[in-house]
Nucleic acid binder design. Structure first.
Lengths: 100, 100
DNA sequence: AAATCATTTCGTTATTTTGCGAAATATAAA
DNA sequence: TTTATATTTCGCAAAATAACGAAATGATTT
């Protein structure tokens, strides 16, 4: 019974998203990109945030891996924007989770 | 300028909450307690989840630390319920975050 | 007082995360 | 083709997380 336990539908996916949002730097970035509906370059964020470029890059990578953002080359920069499709899905999941 | 950087209001708190929700076991527990509006004992959860009691206890501790749940002694058991006040705050924060 | 029950804390191990600076990559400008 | 620009990857270290079983705790029943 406990061997073949499975989490209900959303649970694992929602946990993954929550985890990706579970760091101030990443939340800050998402806030900027999704909530304020803007795109930006790694360099822009570096100017604002008190962390090294490489650290920032790691966080961007994680958000990308989680599917929440996407990077579009605009050489020599990379323009990061929200990944609308997945973002909407995340919104929906959280909404369901919170008010159901 | 970057030395005295500060995250906007909610950011750190929301990140803390998101982090606490960022694990399937913890999300499952919250789902049970908050969404289904039920309380339960550690033992109940142990029966369902495929993890050791001690591991479960750790997760409960984290959720308690994050302020999302509270434990009320009902000896020799401990009845865990959602911490409504903080839960509503979390809801509000997420709501703001997601639809603003 | 001893045995039982529900749960937590402790000690340990393995893995992941967070952070940095240095070096690498890739493109554009000189 | 060299130089400059923007960003990432690499290699590393420190800290946090996740997991377990064994031992401890605290309350209740026998």
């Amino acid at each position: 019974m406990k061997e073949d336990f499975e989490y209900p539908e959303m649970t694992e996916e929602l946990a993954r998203i929550a985890k990706a949002l579970g760091h101030p730097v990443r939340l800050y970035i998402i806030q900027k990109l999704a909530v304020m509906n803007s795109c930006c370059y790694s360099g822009d964020l570096f100017e604002e945030l008190p962390i090294a470029r490489s650290t920032l890059s790691q966080h961007l990578k994680e958000l990308k891996y989680a599917g929440l953002i996407q990077g579009e080359t605009e050489a020599p920069k990379i323009k990061y924007c929200i990944q609308r499709e997945n973002w909407e899905k995340a919104r929906k999941y959280f909404k369901e989770f919170f008010e159901l």
